[in-house]
């Protein structure tokens, strides 16, 4: 599964994207953030404020409790500021 990070999440995690193989109990986007945070402290810095976290699954807007099973691309980013 490809995971992408944008804006200050990318800066805190230190990579723009990576390929991860989470264990089977990781079923939602929130599970994925929990699992990543258990791996390394830099994820804790990025995911500390869940209210500031937005998620897209396979390039579609989603929620933290949305299922990620079978998804090929999950992206985490702060609220958007375009326009």
């Amino acid at each position: 599964m490809r995971v992408l990070y944008f804006a200050w999440l990318r800066e805190r995690i230190g990579v723009a994207h990576e390929t991860v193989s989470p264990p089977d109990y990781v079923k939602t986007a929130a599970d994925l953030t929990d699992w990543l945070m258990s791996q390394e402290p830099r994820y804790q810095a990025a995911f500390a404020d869940l209210a500031a976290l937005r998620v897209a699954i396979d390039q579609e807007q989603a929620d933290l409790d949305s299922p990620i099973t079978g998804a090929s691309e999950v992206a985490f980013f702060p609220p958007v500021t375009g326009g």
Binding site: F6, A7, W8, A56, Q61, A75, F77, P78, P79, V80, T81, G82, G83
Partner: peptide
């Protein structure tokens, strides 16, 4: 425009002349 501001995945970072950067915060008014 209203939907673009809240749904299109863009992020702005502003830098001053010294190169100090800051991510722009999303606005509730948007």
């Amino acid at each position: 425009m209203d939907y673009l501001k809240t749904k299109a995945p863009f992020w702005k970072r502003e830098l001053n002349a010294a190169g100090d950067g800051r991510w722009v915060d999303a606005r509730e008014s948007d």
